[in-house]
Simulated scan of single mutants.
Amino acid sequence: MSIAAAQRNWSKIRGLNPGQPVVHYGIVLSQPQIHDSLATISSMAEWANQFSTLNFSINEPDGAPTNRFRHVQDLGRVMRRASGRLMIAQSAGNFNMNACNVAFGYDTSAGTNDGILVVGCTDKYDYRYPVTANPESYYFTEKQSNYGPCIEVWAPGQSMTTTVGNGSVVTATGTSFAAPVVAALAGRYGDATTRPIEREAYIKEAADWTGHYDGSSFNLPIYRAKYSPPYWHNIPKRLPVTGVYSISSTTNLNKLVDEKFYDGIDWNAGGGWGSIVIDLGSAKNLTGVRVMIRSSANGGTLNFAVHGGNTINVTAPGVATIPNNPIAYQGSNDQFDLVPYYIPISGNYRYVMLEASNAASWLSYSEVEVYGR
């Protein structure tokens, strides 16, 4: 399933991948509508038991006093929520300015393994597109593609043939045409079980340098999204889990790995500190842990410690620990309800123990994923 969000083009919606279903979800450009629509779309994907891609051709207008797509703002947080199910390709905007001011980002940079890609727009020569006139009755004439460190990949979007609401065919330009190219390419990788950060990793690894730079004060290289056979790449995969244990609480342990992020039936440590152990069945080469937290806090400190091991001490049904062997620590001061966190790890281990201390809320997770090769 490939899901698209757009304000216009209410008819003749077309996808780029032959035979792949496309769901069109039109919205009104207000903060409550965007927020509720993103939450609804991700919940729809979960109800359909699909992991998929989302084209999100929306960003802040030029001159907006606040970037609501910033990672700690309302719309940035709901994008992070949706990234549990959907790899999101967001348009960078067309104001010839730093995309970090109008699109998703972590203040001054993009993230890694967050399932969200901000997409810049190139012309057919792989340069950042110049000022290009659009048919004024349907689209604004755009200044130029935005630029900067929050853009992770680029795609063609100049002089694109498209349909409009009355069925007419026009030629138009903008990052709104580049983002769905990336969403479609991501949709070609994997299947309905492929996680958003797996698709994100594929897009980044398959992208190649055009030999050009964005021409801004940052002068960053332009990496073009492209398709390449999946077997060319050694993308980390979500690893299957054979067992889950905890010394904190055994209630709803199975919910940590049931692929349900939003159903409201979660594991809760019963306090601000907790520990879980995940059994992968055999030793694996690990690359990361992604956890979707539940929280009553609006910000606040959350600290993780990850341990790896190949022996386990089971003391009761569902209760176990492994020897302390820290392989990663990570702290965050931006915790919110239903926001995922990715913790890079390494090593060859069968068991992964995730400890966390929450100074601002009870500790609870709706889903935990372990990645490796």
Rank of each mutant, 00 (worst) to 15 (best):
S137D: 13
T250D: 07
F218R: 08
R290D: 03
N313A: 12
Y341P: 04
T173Q: 00
S137R: 12
A359P: 01
S168C: 05
L338R: 11
Y342E: 10
S332M: 10
G120N: 07
F218Y: 15
Y223R: 12
R238Y: 02
P236I: 09
P65E: 07
N298V: 12
R80E: 15
W267V: 05
S168Y: 02
K12M: 13
A360S: 15
G111Y: 04
M97P: 01
G157V: 04
A316I: 02
T132D: 07
A184N: 08
S11H: 10
Y371M: 04
F304S: 05
P32E: 08
A45W: 03
N348E: 09
Y351H: 06
L86D: 03
S296T: 15
D62R: 12
N113F: 09
R195V: 10
S332N: 12
E152G: 13
P229Y: 08
P323M: 05
D114R: 05
N98H: 03
S249V: 08
H212E: 13
I235L: 02
R70C: 03
N59W: 01
K255W: 02
Q90G: 00
I13V: 15
L75Y: 02
T108D: 15
K204H: 12
A172P: 01
V118M: 00
T141A: 03
L338A: 12
V241C: 02
N134A: 04
I222Q: 07
T66C: 02
I235M: 00
S83R: 01
F104G: 02
A283C: 07
G111W: 03
D74G: 10
V182W: 00
L239S: 09
S282A: 15
G105Y: 00
S109K: 15
Q144P: 02
Y125S: 14
A39F: 08
S109C: 13
C121G: 10
Y202Q: 00
L38C: 07
S109D: 14
F51Q: 11
E369Q: 14
Y365P: 00
Y147A: 07
P156Q: 09
Y138R: 08
A316E: 10
I41F: 08
W267K: 02
V102L: 08
T193P: 00
A283S: 15
N252P: 02
T53W: 00
I265S: 11
P323H: 05
P230S: 10
S346Y: 05
D208C: 05
N324K: 11
V182A: 01
G309D: 10
T173E: 05
P135T: 09
S282N: 13
I265N: 13
Y147E: 07
Q31S: 13
Q7D: 13
Y189W: 05
A82S: 10
N303Y: 11
S42E: 11
G93H: 04
H24R: 14
R70S: 12
P32M: 05
L239M: 09
V277Y: 00
M97A: 15
Y189N: 06
G309L: 04
G111Q: 06
